[in-house]
Amino acid sequence: MEVTSFLQWNPVLADPTGQRQAKPRTLGQTMVMDKGLGMYAFQDLLNTSSSHLDMIKLGFGTSPLYPQDLLKSKINLAKERGICVYPGGTFLEVAITQHAVDSFFDMIIALGFNGVEISNGTIDIDRKLRNELILRGMEEGLEVITEYGKKGWGSTIELEELIDTVMIDTEHGAKLVTIEARESGMGVGIFDQAGKCKDEELQKVLSSVNGQLLLWEAPLKSQQVHLISMLGPDIHLGNISPDELIALEALRRGLRSDTLSLGTRKD
């Protein structure tokens, strides 16, 4: 039998749903949180699954804790694979409290970041400053992702406030608005203290806000399964652990038992 040099999975096996967009995609984007990956692990992540990865957030204020050459290398490798890479929003909140916003932007531009997250998960930021920060990010040529919600245990979504936030943030240039769930996924936003989704609140949000403008932090597999089953594989999901990225992509495509029922192709 002749051996060919090029093999390709039958599309019905590679993506039973027949829906997954290739990069650069506008639907079903995935954000991974990097909480301290070394260079080998980071390279492995990109070599294994960069086609399934749209955004990398260097969690909280970890960015200045890396050796600078290593940090630059991580940023450049991500950008070479068409990935938006940005510091966690908490780091910008630190810059605000330390009156060092100009220094923050100067440094992330010099290091090569191509995105920025603007949040008020820990401190309060008034609307005027939030607008200025979004515009500053846009002027610097960065992809701006904002975040809605507080990190405190038991914090909830205030619907009218969320609607206003999404409308104003996106009008000023934000690409996506992240819904806070922290890295634990418990007791914050749309998740109760056990990490279960509060479906009634979720439906209220989606009845008032364009879901394609929202990036849902969903670090737990049970949350990912629930949201994909409920809203489809094109939902934007974030705070995904690096070692769960391929598994999440399998969920999106109906390649795991949890979502196998999604694999009824439309074509």
Rank of each mutant, 00 (worst) to 15 (best):
E171C: 06
S184K: 05
K198V: 12
V177M: 01
W216D: 02
Q212K: 08
L213T: 10
E183F: 05
V205S: 02
G185L: 11
A194I: 03
G195W: 10
I179T: 03
L202I: 14
C197Y: 04
N210D: 15
L202P: 04
K196W: 08
E161K: 08
M186I: 15
V177N: 02
M186S: 11
N210M: 03
G211I: 11
R182G: 03
V188L: 04
G185P: 04
L206H: 08
V166R: 09
A194Q: 12
C197F: 08
L215N: 03
L206C: 09
T170C: 15
L176H: 02
F191P: 04
T178H: 02
N210K: 04
D169K: 02
E217L: 07
L176M: 08
G195Q: 09
L162E: 04
I168S: 09
C197H: 13
K196A: 09
V205D: 00
D192M: 05
I168Y: 11
A194W: 13
F191G: 02
V205F: 00
E183G: 12
V209L: 07
A174K: 05
K196V: 03
V209G: 10
N210A: 12
L206N: 08
G185Q: 14
A181Q: 10
D199P: 02
L206I: 09
K175S: 13
V205E: 05
